[in-house]
Design a protein around this nucleic acid. Structure first.
Lengths: 191, 191
DNA sequence: GTTCTCCATTAACATTTGATAAAAAGCAAT
DNA sequence: ATTGCTTTTTATCAAATGTTAATGGAGAAC
């Protein structure tokens, strides 16, 4: 299992065997079932997460009670470490499993201690856990300026297999349209 | 001038006199004129910024050559420290002054050194320079799920004075609509 | 198998937004 | 004041999206 984590990490930011062993000691394996909300907005959260398998979403509840899907997270990705912890160590967002998922978690405080002691891990932390996330978030903002059809096309490029794996309602919410509109676009793009 | 910076910092995250003096030694005062693009995408950038006065925007150029306004930044705010630096120390976004602006900049590398030595500054750095930004970005993503009219209403709440201060074209781009549509909404909201 | 429920699709109509073009208003330079 | 430039508004029409309601299909529970 940790070998897989090592591969994920190396894919984003190569790290020495020695530094990885220090991180490895903090890792904890977790699983959640489809539909389970495993991080709740305004609740304490002191962990960082890697996704080993499955799909999950982050979401908010709008003023009129609707779920708004903010981001989608798939296998081999880091789950918004900073965005899930505000200055009060609480989460900004809810996170829900859209399929059964396997995660690896890591205590954030302990990781910070490692960052102080080890310059390579510090660099890793700054690079991976912050910048990768932010560029993801910014790309998603950039999407907002496209038309719904263009956004669906981009979604398909980015998340090839997801369209048949998770509820269309979530995809529609992620794209910022109704599921009826999504259905129309899907039909339109078939021809 | 640095007194103002101290006040801005204290407003977000109170910091001791001693720690502030360490930061203070890194501060540099800068001004840019209306219309000036002072940070360019894919160009090296090793600074963090505070805005002392004025308004600026971050933007991208879309595939068809259009400017897309991603974020607006006003007086007394921190200018996306992490988002302006990727892992390669280059900027993800362009930043342009919408009015004449006064900034205080700080070398990021030097600031990181301070963070290593001083636990209070480290805490400040983690809290302010990362989380505040990310919650801003997330709020802006949340906006995407509203209708254009609702987004304009939210914009007015958040940036009370801005509507008469910066080009409507930028506001429209920020809201994800055309300036013609913005004009219609403005008329609509008057009655 | 039957029923139930949830989800996706389709249809019809209303509303919103975009595109284009033209007019009006603001603003700077002279 | 006048000219020229840019921004904002207005109008008209086309396209995209939302709303509501009805239909069809897949899977779960019985």
């Amino acid at each position: 299992m940790n070998k897989k984590v090592k591969n994920i990490i190396d894919g984003i930011f190569p790290i020495s065997e020695k530094s990885f062993q220090e991180i490895e000691s903090l890792l904890k394996f977790e699983t959640f079932e489809k539909g389970e909300t495993f991080i709740q907005r305004n609740k304490r959260n002191e962990k960082e997460y890697f996704i080993l398998s499955g799909v999950c979403k982050s979401y908010l509840i709008s003023p009129d009670g609707e779920e708004i899907t903010i981001s989608l997270f798939t296998e081999n990705n880091i789950l918004s470490p900073q965005s899930i912890r505000t200055s009060k160590n609480t989460s900004n967002l809810n996170f829900q499993a859209l399929t059964n998922i396997e995660l690896v978690s890591m205590n954030a405080k302990e990781f910070e201690s490692l960052m102080i002691e080890n310059i390579e891990i510090r660099h890793f932390g700054n690079t991976v856990l912050q910048n990768e996330l932010i560029s993801k978030v910014e790309k998603e903002i950039g999407l907002a300026s496209l038309t719904a059809k263009e956004r669906l096309i981009e979604f398909r490029k980015k998340y090839r297999l997801l369209e048949n794996l998770i509820p269309h309602t979530d995809i529609a919410s992620y794209l910022g349209i109704t599921n009826i509109s999504l259905s129309r676009l899907r039909k339109d793009l078939m021809s």
